[in-house]
Structures are given as structure tokens and as C-alpha cells.
Design a protein around this nucleic acid. Structure first.
Ligand SMILES: [Mn+2]
Ligand SMILES: [Mn+2]
Ligand SMILES: [Zn+2]
Ligand SMILES: [Zn+2]
Lengths: 151, 151
DNA sequence: TGACAAATTGATACTAGGTATCATGAACGC
DNA sequence: GCGTTCATGATACCTAGTATCAATTTGTCA
């Protein structure tokens, strides 16, 4: 009897493939963030795992970033947000009212980024795009607003 | 005899227009950053003005940001870089080898950002784009590399 | 099943970037 | 000039990490 093939990628296995050990704290952190909304902070993880040291939270986040299992989003103000990677190259939407993070990908954007290379001195090696939005939940009035990020 | 009309905007005057006082520390900070390359850090300013308190450096940077006299660029690693605003809405290029910051603006980009609004849930209220480049100086080999930022 | 080396952990201390507090000093409207 | 208000520097504090290190856990292999 094989275990059923899950649709989710096995993040712990990905870390093991990269030479890291499967430890209880790492598994716990991964389990927590798999159950979380997009855009969690390091501190939010730490609060749910009081027995895991703060340094281990940050160490594990770094490993997950290196393995492209999560992405980091530096906002103008407030702590960086992390979220599970869902597609390969992509960009983020951030709701300026509630802080929720979404992902998007548009071939037209990628194409244009490549095209403007000819107008820019030097050679483009990458790009980063963030869209600031008012999300659907926040457009219907009287919703709880978590914080305020800004463009 | 009037003073000649300078091409540069008078930043101190802009702060005064916003209700702030013209003080020696503020004038000193503005004079320093007018002579600087794009992409200076708060610490770089502080080092050139050892008699100005650290808090005042950050307080003045905040005022300058609020007045849109400078812009702040959060990089993946390393201290945030500030630079004098030169055009209204614009984006930045960052050299991944030397850290130099440039500005660019492309109508096609702005148009596309508006256009993809229809593909995104919610309402777009702003955006932010950074291009990671290898700048011209860094493409000719054996140039001094200041640091390494990354996409 | 150990036993062992290497990796990992949590505690602790430290750093960088920035903010809150507050007594002293400078701006500026009159 | 003078008084109010604003701004300053010193100091302490804060958040997001990182360095260090003794104690524990893993993975490997006998
Ligand atoms: Mn993402
Ligand atoms: Mn700029
Ligand atoms: Zn929202
Ligand atoms: Zn360069």
C-alpha cells in the first residue's frame, strides 16, 4: 500500500534533497505554514511554536527561501511577509488595507520587461514587481483591516 | 540683483512649505545628499556629519520621503538606499554587482500595469518595479564591486 | 541495535535600522 | 528682543535577524 500521491509538494523532502536533515522543528514549521494564509510573518510562526527557538525559525525560513519553497516580500513598512511558492517565476499583489498577499503571472509583463532592456543602460538580469491593490474583501465596506501597507 | 534661478529644486524650501523649520542639521543633510551618487544609505550620511545625531538623520530622511524629495529603495539584503527624486513617478534599476541605483520611466510599462488590472482580483492602487541589472561600468571587467544585491 | 560524527538546536548575546522619550537649544512670528 | 513651539542629541528601546556555543538529535554504518 503506497501513500496516496498528494498534490502538494513535500517541502521537507525538498529540503532533504538539498542535504538538510528532517528534524522535528523543521517539520513543525512547515506544517504550520502550509496551513497559513499567504503573507505570514516570521513572528506569527514563532508564536504558534513557542517551544521552537527564535533562531531556528529564521534559520528554517532561510533554508526554505534557498529551496524556493517560500518567497519573501519586503514591504515598505512592517515585517517582511513570507508565503508558500505556488508557481515558478511570479509577482505579488498586496492589499493596502488588509495586507493579504496574492500571486500573479502575466506573460505580457515578462515580455515587456525583456523588451525594455534595450532602453536601459546595462544588462537586465532580473526584475521584481509588486502590485498594490484593494482586495475584493476590502472593497465591501466594514471589513476588518489588519494593517496598512503602501505603494 | 537676484540670485540666479537654479535648475535644482530647493529642497529646504519644499520642507518649509510643508511647515518645517530651516535648521542647520537639515540644511547640512540636504547639502550632503545633493552631492551624492544615487543610492546612498542613512549611515553614509551620518558618517559625513558626525555632529548630527543619528535620530536627526532618520527624522530628516522621513520628512524628505514625505515631501517626495527622495525615494527609498528596499533591497533584498543590505540597508535601504535613498536617492534624490528626479522625475515624478518612476522605477529603479539596481546593479547587482556594484549596487548603483538608476531611475527609469517607460510609458509602455505604465500602460501595461493599468491594463493587467482586469486580470487581477481587486482594484489596483499602485505598483512598484525594480530592474536588476549589471551596469555599464560593471560589464567592463576589473571594476571595483561595492556589494552584491540580488533579484 | 548501537555507536559515532556531523548537523541541528535553543539560549544568549550581538548587530543593523529605526523609533520613543525627554531635557536642552534653536527658529521664527510678533 | 521674547516667548512659544519646534527641533535636537543623548539615551534607551524595538524589531528583524545573525554569531556563538554547549547540549541534543540525526543519519549512517558496523
Ligand atoms: Mn510568491
Ligand atoms: Mn528614485
Ligand atoms: Zn484586503
Ligand atoms: Zn554596477
Amino acid at each position: 500500500m503506497n501513500a496516496p500521491v498528494t498534490s502538494r509538494p513535500d517541502i521537507m523532502a525538498a529540503l532533504e534533497d538539498r542535504g538538510h536533515r528532517s528534524t522535528a522543528p523543521r517539520r513543525a514549521i512547515i506544517r504550520i505554514l502550509e496551513g497559513k494564509q499567504e503573507g505570514f510573518t516570521a513572528e506569527e510562526i514563532g508564536k504558534e511554536l513557542p517551544d521552537v527557538g527564535r533562531a531556528t525559525i529564521f534559520r528554517t525560513i532561510k533554508l526554505l527561501l534557498e529551496a524556493d519553497a517560500i518567497c519573501k516580500l519586503n514591504l515598505i513598512n512592517g515585517a517582511p511577509r513570507y508565503s508558500l511558492s505556488r508557481v515558478e517565476h511570479h509577482h505579488h499583489t498586496v492589499c493596502v488595507r488588509c495586507g493579504n498577499v496574492g500571486e500573479f503571472r502575466a506573460a505580457t509583463v515578462e515580455r515587456l520587461m525583456r523588451a525594455i532592456g534595450s532602453d536601459i543602460p546595462g544588462k537586465i538580469v532580473g526584475h521584481r514587481i509588486e502590485l498594490y491593490v484593494t482586495c475584493r474583501q476590502c472593497m465591501t465596506p466594514d471589513q476588518p483591516s489588519r494593517n496598512s501597507e503602501g505603494p
